[in-house]
Design a protein around this nucleic acid. Structure first.
Lengths: 256, 256
DNA sequence: ATGGGACCTCACGTAGCGTGAGGGTCAAGG
DNA sequence: CCTTGACCCTCACGCTACGTGAGGTCCCAT
C-alpha cells in the first residue's frame, strides 16, 4: 500500500487548510464535504477534488456565509452566485449597522454618566495655579528650559475674566467629549477635533501652539499622573489613545 | 385579593417592556431577574424593583452585552461599569472590523468574476450607434424634444479615435467598479465617484452635463431595460441604487 | 358550571464547531 | 513480538439567548 500523493488524512488536510480536524468531521457529518472512505479502518481520506472543494468552502466562509448557503453555492456552480453574494452583503451591512447602534448606545451611556463623574468644577481644579506651576516644572525637567520656551503653561492666562474661563472649560469638555465618542466608536475623523484642541490650547496660552508643542504636550499627558488619571476617568485606555492621536496628527502635518 | 397596583404578571410585564414571556422565563431560570413568587399557583409576580431591574437589563442588552456580563453589572452597581462599557466597545469594534473584512471579501469576489462577465467588449456593444439612436429616441419620447436639447447622446462622439474610445471605456469600467464597491460595502463617499461619472458623460457628449441632465440620464437608467440589465449584471439591485445615487447627488447640488 | 385566556413546567432546536471520553490503528523502535 | 506514541474513530454534551410547541393547571367572567 504505497501512500499516494494527492491523498491526505483528516489531520493532514486540516493542517494544510488551516482548519481543525473537528471542523472536517463536522463538514462530513452535515454532508458539506464528504471524504473518500477507502481505508477499511474507517479513516477519512481526502483527495484533490475534496481539497479544492474545501478551499471553495473556506472562500465563502470568509464572507460569513452559513454552511447551508455554502452547500448550495458549491453544489450549484455559478447559479445565482452574484445574487447570493449581494444578499450576504446586505445581511452583513445590517449586522454592522446593528453594531453601530450598540456602539452609539455605549457612547451615549458613557457620556451620560460622565456628566456626573467629571464636571466642569473638576476641570477647574485641573487648572489651578499650583497645578500649572507643577506642570511647567515637569516640562522644564523633562525637556529642558528651551522646550519651556515652546510649550507655555496656562498660568499667565488664569487671570481671565470668569465668564471667559467658564467658556473655555465648557469648550474643553465638549472637545474631550467628542474625542471620547470617536475613541469608543472606533471610527470618525479625529483630525479636526485634535486641531480644535490645539486651537484651544493656543487660546489658553495666549500664543500659537505649534504641532511640535502640541506633541510635547501629548508627552506630558502620557507621563504625568494627573493627566493620565483625568483622561483615564473619561474612558479606560483613553489616556493612551488621546496623546497618540495628537502625535499622529502632528506627524501627519509633517512634524516629527 | 385586590390586585395591587405596581404588580404585574409575566405577560403584563412582557408587554410593558416589549420582550417575550419566554425571555422573562429565561431570565428567571438563569437568575438574572427573579420575580416574587407570591401566588400559591406558582405564578410569577413582578413588582416595581423588578421592573426597574428589567429596564436596566434591557439597557445593557442594547449595547450587545452578554447576560452574564449584565448580571455582574446590575448586581455590583457602579463597580467598574466604565471599564465594562469600554471593553464591550472594544469587542464590538473587533466584531465590526471582522464584518468589514467579510464585506471586503465579497467586494473582491464580485469584482473578480465581474471581469469575466462584463468585459470591455460588452461595454463597447452598449455604445453602438444603433443603440445610441434608440436611447436618444427614448429620451425625446419621455422628456420631449426640449429635454433632448439638454441631454445629448454620444452618437456624435463615436467617431473618436479608437485609442481614445478604449480609454473612455476603461475609465467607465473603473467608475462602475468603484460604484459597485461602495454599493456592496454600504459605506464610503459616493459623491466624488458620481461626479467622476458626470464628467465622463460630459466628455462623451463633448459638452457639459448639468446636474439636471445627469438626473435625466438617471431616469433613463431606471427605465430602459438595456441599462437595467447591464447594471443588474454588475450586482443585484445596483440598477436601482446607481440612479438613486445620481439623483441624490444632483439634489445635494441644489437641482430638483 | 364552563369556556377561553393566561399561566405553569419540561424539553428540544438553533450554528458551528470545542472539548473531552473511551477506544481502535499504524509505524517504528526495543 | 511487543510496546509506545501519534493519529484516527464515534458518540455526546456544551455554548448564546431565547423560539416554539406539548401537555397540563388556574383564574375570571358569563
Amino acid at each position: 500500500m504505497t501512500k499516494r500523493i494527492d491523498e491526505w488524512s483528516v489531520g493532514e488536510l486540516a493542517r494544510k487548510a488551516g482548519v481543525s480536524v473537528r471542523t472536517l468531521h463536522h463538514y462530513d457529518e452535515i454532508g458539506l464535504l464528504r471524504p473518500r472512505r477507502t481505508g477499511q479502518a474507517g479513516y477519512r481520506v481526502y483527495g484533490r477534488p475534496e481539497a479544492l472543494r474545501l478551499r471553495e468552502i473556506m472562500f465563502y466562509r470568509a464572507m460569513g456565509m452559513g454552511l447551508d448557503q455554502i452547500a448550495g453555492l458549491v453544489d450549484a456552480p455559478g447559479k445565482d452566485r452574484r445574487a447570493r453574494l449581494a444578499e450576504q452583503a446586505v445581511r452583513l451591512k445590517a449586522e454592522r449597522s446593528r453594531i453601530d447602534d450598540m456602539l452609539a448606545a455605549i457612547v451615549e451611556a458613557v457620556e451620560t454618566d460622565r456628566e456626573s463623574i467629571m464636571t466642569i468644577d473638576d476641570l477647574y481644579k485641573a487648572f489651578e495655579p499650583a497645578k500649572q506651576a507643577e506642570y511647567e516644572a515637569w516640562l522644564v525637567e523633562n525637556y529642558g528650559p528651551d522646550m519651556a520656551d515652546h510649550i507655555a503653561t496656562s498660568k499667565a492666562q488664569l487671570e481671565k475674566v470668569p465668564e471667559e474661563m467658564a467658556a473655555k472649560m465648557a469648550e474643553l469638555r465638549d472637545i474631550e467629549e467628542a474625542l471620547v465618542a470617536i475613541f469608543l466608536r472606533g471610527e470618525g475623523d479625529v483630525g479636526p477635533v485634535i486641531e480644535r484642541h490645539r486651537a484651544w490650547v493656543a487660546a489658553m496660552w495666549g500664543r500659537p501652539c505649534s504641532h511640535a508643542a502640541h506633541a510635547g504636550l501629548a508627552d506630558m499627558y502620557l507621563s504625568h499622573p494627573d493627566f493620565v488619571a483625568r483622561f483615564e476617568m473619561l474612558a479606560p485606555r483613553f489616556s493612551q489613545w488621546f496623546p497618540a492621536a495628537i502625535k499622529a496628527n502632528a506627524a501627519a502635518q509633517g512634524v516629527g
